[in-house]
């Protein structure tokens, strides 16, 4: 599994398309896809918003993510880093933010390659670029 992270709007999708040959349109949007669709997708972007969907549905997100990893180990997952900045005011937002952090660690641990995009510039944090 390849994990591509970075702040919002740093060029993650464009990079996934250019270096991993996955068209931007072939990536499922974590904000709007159904979790069962995500299980069959080759690539998912805005995974942090799929996490929000799963939390709303009362799903154990870490267990669900482990299942996703078992089903297709060759997936590409794109996720925004959201954990910097101010701790949110509401308990719901804090839970989401913390879950995104924990999921990020789980995904990175299981990824063969982790790349961070910064202003469109990739830095390989784990593994190697293809």
């Amino acid at each position: 599994m390849v994990l591509i992270i970075g702040g919002a709007y740093q060029g993650k999708r464009k990079f996934a398309a250019s270096r991993f040959g996955i068209a931007e349109t072939a990536l499922l949007d974590g904000a709007s896809c159904r979790p069962e669709e995500a299980l069959c997708a080759k690539g998912i972007f805005r995974y942090q918003l799929l996490i929000r969907q799963l939390l709303h549905a009362g799903t154990d997100v870490l267990e669900w993510t482990k299942m996703l990893l078992r089903q297709d180990p060759d997936r590409i997952i794109l996720m925004d880093e959201i954990g910097c900045g101010i701790i949110p005011m509401t308990a719901e937002e804090r839970l989401w933010r913390e879950t995104v952090g924990r999921c990020g660690c789980l995904l990175a641990e299981n990824a063969s390659t982790v790349i961070r995009l910064f202003c469109g510039i990739p830095t390989v944090l784990k593994g190697e670029l293809p």
Partner: peptide, 9 residues
């Protein structure tokens, strides 16, 4: 300024 990693909410 770098502002992109503090969330999008």
């Amino acid at each position: 300024p770098e502002i992109s990693s503090g969330g999008t909410d």
